[in-house]
Amino acid sequence: MENLTALAYDLRKDVINMICAGKAGHIGGDMSVMDTLVTLYFSQMNISPENMDNPDRDLFVMSKGHSVEALYAVLAKKGFFSIDEVIEKFSKFGSKFIGHPNNKLPGIEMNSGSLGHGLPVCVGMALAGKMNHKNYRVYTVMGDGELAEGSVWEGAMSASQYKLDNLCAVVDRNRLQISGTTEEVMHQDDVAERFRSFGWNVIDVKDGNSIEQLNAAFEEAKTVKGKPTLLVANTIKGCGSSVMENKAAWHHHVPNDEEYAQIMKDLEARKEAALHE
């Protein structure tokens, strides 16, 4: 787990370089969701460049598609394409590495970015798996601001109705969105209790930036039968540097030279700390 934590900080550096080169990107959410993606792709999911066309592979949809930079970094590390290519081409005219997931790229199951679509589509994927007697699992990551979308709750009802225990959703609960805190924009109350009332098994991940806690939660989700599982990952927006952490202004922001230097220094320090815990 220490090695995966260190990897997550290295991949955050790739995201910073990507955003600075492309002069665009949703940096705060990239930083908060990185540990979830690293846990899924390097510890949990049966997915690789070698089996990406295998009908038995696990499926992942990045519902909070504006945090695509984190997904690009993870997919590059996994070998779907090169990180150098991503940094060179991200957000450039004519590039496939656009600011939301693009299924013309290997490893990306669907285009996303219109918030609220990921969970309903994953319900369909999971239901298809049940109907076809497949053993694959389906995962999606949503933002907490995204929970204001009505389609999320239609998907939640359907997943419970069809007892989709092969479906696991994650809420990146960083409590900030582009226009302020989630509680100010559209208050969340208790996310866990809301999903439980819709018939879901819910696991509250106290530290959603802890790969150890996330890994344990995903393992627990695999044991649940007869209902879908939601992980409420309590994360820090901008996780990795005090320059960014818990600041709504970093929802979409390109670091200047001074900020870049400090962020990279902080990320390296946290990586070293993780390796020596």
Rank of each mutant, 00 (worst) to 15 (best):
A169E: 06
V171I: 15
D172G: 09
D172C: 03
D172P: 03
R173G: 00
R175D: 11
L176V: 06
L176K: 06
L176W: 04
Q177T: 12
Q177E: 10
I178H: 13
I178L: 15
I178S: 15
G180Y: 14
T182D: 10
T182L: 07
V185Y: 10
V185A: 13
M186K: 13
M186E: 14
H187Q: 12
H187F: 08
V191D: 01
V191P: 01
V191Q: 00
A192Y: 05
A192Q: 11
F195P: 00
S197K: 08
W200L: 02
N201S: 15
I203D: 00
I203Y: 02
K206H: 12
K206D: 13
K206T: 14
D207C: 12
N209H: 03
E212D: 10
E212Q: 07
Q213T: 02
L214P: 07
E220S: 09
V224F: 08
V224M: 03
V224Q: 09
P228Q: 06
T229F: 03
T229A: 10
L230H: 03
L231W: 01
V232R: 09
V232M: 07
T235R: 03
T235I: 06
K237E: 00
C239D: 05
E245D: 10
N246S: 14
N246M: 11
A249K: 15
A249G: 12
W250T: 10
V254S: 07
E258N: 13
E259G: 07
Y260L: 11
Y260N: 10
A261G: 10
Q262Y: 05
M264P: 01
M264S: 06
M264T: 09
D266N: 08
L267C: 00
R270P: 06
R270W: 12
K271R: 06
